[in-house]
């Protein structure tokens, strides 16, 4: 996380905005160790398709038209999530994020989606925490390795 503070203790976040299917997501740019082009011929161990990891139904891999790999590291462990290249980098105060409604939060948190951000030109952006997503049950059980 970017610890830069503005006007007090409000944390400032740099958010990478990307699309998956018809939805827009954003991730804290400081979480990323690397952003690299997707190479289908490369070893994809520890890598999975983002839309599959978050349970986004009705999206084919072919629909990811500008695939890139969002790489995060936790200790010695490295995870990669393949999805469309970022289309925007926006800065927001943490206070402008909205917690998810209580009805949906239990279902979303386990898939790494932890908050929402209304942005006029995009609509509702879903905030994804790649570390949470990497720890989600489906990925922990090894389903995340892309064939």
């Amino acid at each position: 996380m970017n610890r830069a503070e503005t006007g007090g203790s409000i944390e400032r976040l740099r958010l990478l905005v990307f699309s998956a299917g018809s939805l827009r997501f954003a991730a804290d740019a400081d979480q990323l160790a690397q952003l690299r082009e997707y190479d289908p011929s490369a070893n994809q161990c520890g890598t999975c398709w983002f839309h599959e990891a978050v349970g986004l139904d009705g999206v084919d891999r072919e629909a990811v038209v500008r695939p890139e790999v969002y790489v995060v590291r936790q200790g010695a462990q490295e995870y990669g999530f393949i999805t469309n290249a970022p289309e925007d980098l926006i800065e927001r105060d943490a206070g402008s994020l909205r917690p998810l409604p209580s009805l949906v939060e239990p279902f979303s948190l386990v898939r790494g989606i932890w908050a929402a951000l209304p942005v006029e030109r995009y609509g509702i952006i879903l905030l994804v925490d790649f570390f949470r997503l990497a720890a989600s049950p489906g990925l922990r059980s090894g389903q995340g390795d892309t064939p």
Binding site: S22, L23, V54, G55, L56, D57, L100, P101, L103, V104, F107, S108, V110, R111, I113, A116, G123, I124, L126
Partner: peptide, 13 residues
């Protein structure tokens, strides 16, 4: 706006 992973009776936000 749909949100992944929620039950079918929750169309979104």
């Amino acid at each position: 706006s749909p949100i992944p992973g929620t039950p079918e009776c929750i169309p979104g936000l």
